[in-house]
Design a protein around this nucleic acid. Structure first.
Lengths: 188, 188
DNA sequence: TGTATTATTTGACCTAAGTCAAATGTCGTA
DNA sequence: TACGACATTTGACTTAGGTCAAATAATACA
């Protein structure tokens, strides 16, 4: 599936000058401080955020508890998918876990750009396909793997997560309690 | 999210005659008997199946056990998403749970059609967005709900599933053992 | 350097769900 | 209608993971 990221990047590089330029022109770099919220619950996700550097996460509240649904690193695209797609209020927050720099494109502007530069429509489809496969894979893990297996999977495939994100957040990302995560780590 | 299905259907209805016709021309109705496999593990999912009538499911094998990942009813679109998108061998099977009639479109033909009828590209994006939201919602359920809650969710939102699909399959779809499902049902 | 604050670990106990085995139900067809 | 093949339930016991409380790190910064 990493190969699909490469395919997307290749596609972007292969775009004609005009389309590349259009993308460039509707993008705007922004900085956020650690702890800042890029998106709040109940707001409509009207922008997409491409992480230039730093770390961020997406989470929602489940009777008072924060459940982390996605972690973002360099080159990851951060949106609340259903809020962005349906332009309806978001259930999720997006929060900067460190100081971050992002490249922002507004939903509306991107929709317009797709009309004038049809290749952006294909890009949109590719990004959506990628996200679909990513979520499907995560669902698969919850469907069939134990907490220990899910932790080991992160440890091997995404060790940077373990190194740079507090255990409380990793635990909620894995769908287990902080204590259970601590015990899993002790056992290994 | 049902509203998004309506939006997709409206979009299809609003398509110009040529595009509608193109879709029509690349579709082919096929019949399968109960128990037939529309897609086998390790095969590439080179076709999409729109259920005209009957019931089908998608599943994979997890050390010998069948794990159902999706149930299909009338008007549902059945594919193994990552196999279809990447045109790589499928981890999943698609099986007819009853006799079914499907409208089949080949991946290759559809890719070609998208070039000549750009509105099909938008349709592809909409369908992919819908699937993304559907999977996201299912992941949410596994992330935060108990088995009983997940069962009750099906019971209220999709009672036709409970009525028409054997409990063994529903249990695997819920990610629990058959015995646990039986006990949940006894308690309610 | 000391102390407050936050992050992580450990202990004791509880609960949801799994496993294995056996008992019932249900249904199609000879 | 009886019998084999599934489908579903029930029982007894095990296990993964949760909860609450307390004990240690680790950090930050006055």
């Amino acid at each position: 599936m990493t190969s699909y990221i490469n395919k997307i990047n290749d596609y972007i590089k292969s775009l004609d000058y005009e389309t590349q330029n259009a993308l460039q022109n509707i993008s705007l770099n922004k900085h956020y401080k650690k702890g800042d919220l890029l998106l709040r619950q109940n707001e409509i996700c009207s922008k997409s955020y491409l992480l230039i550097n730093g770390i961020a996460r997406k989470y929602y509240l489940n009777d008072g508890k924060e459940i982390t649904t996605e972690l973002y690193f360099e080159n990851d695209l951060a949106i609340s998918f259903d809020s962005y797609t349906l332009q309806q209020p978001s259930k999720e927050f997006i929060e900067a876990l460190t100081d971050v720099t992002v490249s922002v494109i507004s939903y509306q502007t991107f929709q317009e750009a797709k009309k004038n530069f049809p290749k952006l429509l294909t890009l949109d489809l590719m990004l959506t396909e990628y996200y679909g496969m990513w979520v499907e894979n995560r669902l698969f893990q919850f469907h069939t793997m134990t907490a220990t297996q899910r932790y080991l999977d992160i440890l091997t495939k995404s060790p940077h997560i373990i190194q740079s994100v507090p255990l409380t957040i990793i635990a909620s990302y894995l769908g287990i309690s902080l204590e259970t995560l601590s015990r899993i780590r002790a056992k290994i």
